[in-house]
Design a protein around this nucleic acid. Structure first.
Lengths: 150, 150
DNA sequence: TGACAATACTTGTATATGCAAATAAACCCG
DNA sequence: CGGGTTTATTTGCATATACAAGTATTGTCA
């Protein structure tokens, strides 16, 4: 790799957004067979993996605004995939996945895997691995959760 | 780089989404100084670069759904940055940037550049260049516009 | 030419997203 | 203890996103 690379010309933000649209469409098409959206699947997966957790912590972990999580969570709770109870504080809450949520997650995971493997096949595993590495690196600098943006 | 890379574990879709959230926030914070959002800036820039164009073509060029463009365009038109007139057909339209739109784009471009340079500095130009290369490659396989998704 | 298909755009509906502000409770300090 | 500050979450508002269905028009072919 050349160290004297010139400043990239295209807008990084636009490229990311454009690609996300296409990729989300790919994953969503597959996950639709389990009656769930990619965003909901991510949320559900994080709930399963992180166990009972406060909304705030979950939002930080997922790198999204707390207010966004509040609303995304509402949908998941309405589906019966999670519950929200009192937390250690009166101000805080405790979110937990239900057994229906675990079942739905397991069902959806099979579809997710199909989408993921198809994605890898279409792009090539090497390129996907390289992409993940760059995304992970970039996330350490631009995760919404833990940063000072200036 | 190793050709025998294993299947990447994390969800590509989620990583992209998470990073976009952070990166959009970065660009939006800067563009807010020009009173415009990144999505609107992209739309405006495409209008300037592509000249008079039909909504359908513009949507394809930007890799987004036509219905999304309809609504995003509404905001831009309400701001007086573009106009929509009759096209060659009665069904078709012709979208064109206004002089106010060109001015706003020029104003915003300076802020965009600041954001872009800060992005490059934070990540390192080499990594950004590598990222762009991968994003561009992935876009050839997953652009929403011109593909058969299965 | 008249119906059926294809094209171009918009609307209906649902979700995702974040900033700013509103609530509410806990914490801290004098 | 009382008041100001910090913390945790939700609401108000605006935008972004896309699929499905609706509307309007054009193209095609028998």
């Amino acid at each position: 790799m050349n160290t004297l690379t010139r400043q990239p010309q295209g807008c990084s933000n636009f490229k990311l957004r454009q690609l996300l649209r296409g990729v989300s469409r790919h994953y969503d098409a597959e996950l639709a067979n389990a009656g769930i959206k990619t965003t909901q699947y991510s949320l559900l997966s994080h709930l399963v993996d992180l166990g009972p957790i406060t909304p705030g912590d979950l939002a930080r972990r997922m790198g999204m605004d707390a207010s966004t999580l509040t609303r995304n969570l509402r949908v998941v709770i309405e589906q019966g995939w999670a519950t929200q109870g009192p937390g250690r504080d009166t101000r805080s809450r405790r979110v937990e996945v239900t057994s229906a949520g675990r079942a739905k997650r397991a069902e959806a995971k099979a579809h997710w895997k199909r989408a993921q493997l198809a994605f890898n096949a279409r792009l090539g595993v090497t390129k996907v691995a390289a992409l993940h590495e760059l995304l992970d690196h970039a996330l350490t600098h631009f995760s919404t959760g833990d940063h000072a943006d200036d």
